[in-house]
């Protein structure tokens, strides 16, 4: 086990360094819109230096005058000491901004996780049990429709019909204007009220995948020999499904759950942007658009680490829930 872990971890470390290098190279190879914009702004001031001089000075100041490899080593040197520099856009240390916003994303995604499993798994099982029935077709079409709907369009449809036409839920944001005057409980309720639509959107986005995944696995389990045995023994169908089939369906679902880790912390970029939830996704999107290299690099490496951890976790979880699997 420990040998396996060490091997996986060292491999993950290698992939991390390479992945970050690739990301850094891509970012550096792109024309830096941030520095250019800033230089143009500064040179436009009366009596200022010409644009080229500003550009040179800013490039030096922001550490863009080095070649890519030196820049990467310099960035990595800071990163291993958890010093990711100051965000250019937000003008505070990257980690500080991250600490401010990550919990919104986490809360939203945790909520989504519960909702989507609570809805998706039962529906998937239902569809598998009644294969080729009307229910099955309905579930399949619903799942495929959820997968086929672009996030932004789904969010807009909700905003248009639920927020604008019906006026039930707020259009965007995380707080009402009266947020400051509310009690602690009221504040939580206010945030929850604002999170209904984002959570609904996120749920519908991933529920299709979960339903299909559950259905496929359930079908496979239902076709296996031990289910036939259980039925042959004369067990009631309820017991066959709930005790024998369902538990075995959970095995692949556990691995699916661990792959959800990146999305839980990584934030849902488009959804947060659509509803202007100041989570890590929205904040990072704005940083990326502004060409804020320190924040973009931090976000990319953060997601990279999460993905790597989730992959290792999936392997371990698989072995934990299924004793037949041997790690090595």
């Amino acid at each position: 086990m420990s040998k396996f872990l060490i091997r996986r971890l060292s491999l993950a470390l290698l992939i991390f360094f390479m992945g970050v290098f690739v990301s850094y190279s891509v970012i550096r190879m792109m024309p830096s819109s941030y520095v250019e914009t800033k230089a143009r702004e500064l040179s436009a001031a009366p009596g200022s230096k010409p644009y080229e001089e500003w550009l040179e000075q800013l490039n030096k100041k922001y550490g863009l005058d080095t070649d890519i490899f030196t820049g990467y080593v310099r960035w990595l040197g800071g990163a291993v000491r958890l010093d990711f520099g100051d965000s250019w856009k937000y003008t505070i240390p990257v980690t500080e901004k991250f600490g401010q916003v990550i919990w919104y994303s986490f809360a939203m995604n945790l909520l989504t996780l519960f909702v989507q499993f609570a809805i998706g798994i039962p529906l998937g099982i239902l569809a598998a049990r009644k294969q080729y029935s009307k229910t099955d077709y309905a579930v399949t079409v619903f799942a495929l429709a959820c997968i086929s709907l672009p996030t932004f369009f789904m969010a807009m449809i909700f905003k248009y019909f639920i927020s604008i036409k019906l006026g039930w839920l707020p259009l965007y944001g995380l707080h009402s204007s009266t947020y400051g005057t509310l009690s602690t409980f009221g504040k939580i309720a206010d945030i929850a009220y604002h999170m209904i639509l984002p959570v609904l959107t996120l749920t519908l986005l991933s529920i299709g995948g979960i339903m299909r995944y559950t259905r496929t696995n359930m079908l496979e389990v239902l076709n296996s020999d031990y289910i036939r045995t259980a039925r042959a023994k004369g067990l009631p169908e309820k017991r066959v499904i709930n005790k024998h089939a369902f538990r075995n369906t959970l095995i692949p679902l556990v691995t699916l759950m661990s792959t959800l880790l990146p999305s839980m912390f990584g934030g849902a970029m488009i959804t947060e942007t659509m509803y202007q939830i100041p989570g890590i996704g929205y904040i990072s999107y704005q940083a990326i658009i502004a060409g804020d290299i320190p924040f973009s690099m931090f976000y990319l490496s953060f997601l990279l680490i999460l993905t790597l951890i989730s992959l290792i976790l999936a392997d371990i979880m698989y072995a934990v829930v299924d004793p037949r699997v041997r790690i090595n």
């Binding site: 992945g19 891509v26 792109m30 990584g266 990072s284 973009s296 990319l300 997601l303 993905t307 992959l311």
Partner: peptide, 11 residues
């Protein structure tokens, strides 16, 4: 492992 959407947006 490299995050698809953020990298795409950067490019």
């Amino acid at each position: 492992c490299i995050p698809f959407y953020p990298l795409l947006m950067i490019i």
